Simulated assay, not measured.
Amino acid sequence: MWYDKLALTYLGGAVLRAVSIWVTALGDAPWYFNAMYALMRTSVAGLRPIYKVDSGLVEIPICSWNGTFNFRAPTSGRVERLLRTRLRGAMDGTIPECTGSIVTGPWCLDQDGRATGLSAAALLDQTLATSIRAAAPELSTMVTTELQLNFLVPPPSDGTVLEAWTRSGFVDSRGGVAFGALRGPDAREYVHAVGWFQAVHSAPTGALDNFHRMGALPLGPTFDVTLDKLLGLRSLASKAADGGPADSDGFVKGPDLPMIDEFLNRNGTVHGGVTTMMAGLAAKAAMPPDSDSFDLQSLRLVFLRPATGPITSRARIRHPGRSLRIVDVGLFSGHTTPGNPTSHAPGAESKGGE
């Protein structure tokens, strides 16, 4: 019987920790090193284990890092704080992971006091992007090009914590698509989400500083309000004048979003989650008075160009069914012309119910 001194060295670009242990073995011990090598290959994702055998002393670098971990959570801005969301990092990006959460409250109610999953739009927009960045760390700066939300069940507004579980679906050097769901403590799903993202250049100078400065502003009881009031939307009373469902010949004016620095993202443009929530509320506002029992069923928002100023909305009812109504919404930035919307929600669907 003999002893081999085994020095285990953890390498991650630099020596982080060294541990010496004694291993007892009978005869020659190459089986031990092969077993450890196989174990490291199957248990440490993203790492390339290596070892070498010298006379007497065996040095085993446990892992040689050939990638970048993305454990650090994305920085939260003002929008995330207003909606009581918490962002987390992702370790893999290609498998479902909990990448964020939202504490429900009055901000989960629309202008009519009905529960709405729209309040999770900002959380899902961010967490879908988190999964793509984890799968492809080189995509450090991206913009949302399309976001689709399917609302399964109205969420609570009693302080329940809901979690965003997301994963990337396809990623390349130009961007990618990710999928996600908003789940409750009992694993009940409230919202399904699909997001498309495109790689862009770095943020302009000063945009990130403003993002951090706005995110550090305090919250107070005045922010415990419904979603429309939290966003500061104006002119929400744009329902059809007649008492029944009727098609519009054209678009009618919807709510306005004043220019507020708090809603700018790290790229210096209006947060995609804010424009998504605005589009959903604009679709609800365009519904005729007999639509109080209708809840938003799905919303697909296409981002045509960044919004950098105040945003106005226009909407029209495309299909005025008795149980299903479809509304088209266009959002226009103060720096674009009426013929060039900044975002378009082609056919937000509302389903009737008791």
Rank of each mutant, 00 (worst) to 15 (best):
G117H: 01
G100V: 00
V177G: 04
W107G: 08
A199C: 08
R188I: 09
M36D: 09
M278V: 14
S43R: 12
V23W: 15
P320W: 04
S173H: 04
G89M: 07
L217M: 06
A178D: 05
N210M: 14
G195K: 08
G250M: 03
A285G: 01
F303Y: 15
A203E: 10
I60V: 15
S350M: 15
L57N: 10
T337I: 11
D186K: 02
R234M: 10
L301K: 07
R266Y: 12
P245N: 07
I95C: 07
I102Y: 01
C63R: 13
A134D: 01
G353E: 08
R322S: 08
H192D: 13
V153Y: 11
P30M: 06
F71G: 03
D295C: 09
F332P: 00
L182S: 04
T127P: 09
F332I: 15
T130M: 02
C108D: 01
A90F: 05
G105S: 06
A279I: 01
F33L: 15
F211Q: 01
T269N: 12
F303M: 04
T24K: 14
I326Q: 10
P255C: 09
L304K: 11
L219M: 12
P341T: 02
G339T: 08
L139C: 02
A90E: 02
P137S: 07
D125G: 04
M40N: 14
G243W: 08
S343G: 08
V143S: 09
V19P: 00
D228S: 13
R48A: 14
F263S: 00
L26G: 12
M287A: 12
T24I: 07
P289Q: 08
G330V: 06
R78K: 12
E189N: 02
P338A: 15
M278E: 03
I62H: 05
G206P: 05
G309T: 12
E349P: 03
G309W: 13
E262A: 15
L147I: 00
Q148K: 14
P245Q: 07
T144M: 12
V329D: 06
D295S: 14
M278S: 03
Q297D: 05
S64G: 08
T42S: 12
M1W: 04
Q126D: 07
A7Y: 10
L124T: 00
G334D: 10
P346V: 04
A164P: 09
L236N: 02
F33M: 10
L304N: 11
P258D: 10
R183P: 00
D242F: 14
G67E: 10
G215W: 02
L324G: 03
V327T: 09
V15R: 15
V171K: 08
R188M: 10
A29Q: 14
F197S: 04
V19A: 11
L231W: 07
F303E: 01
S140E: 11
D54N: 11
L109Y: 07
G105W: 03
V153L: 14
P255A: 13
G100C: 02
I21Y: 10
Y190A: 06
L39R: 05
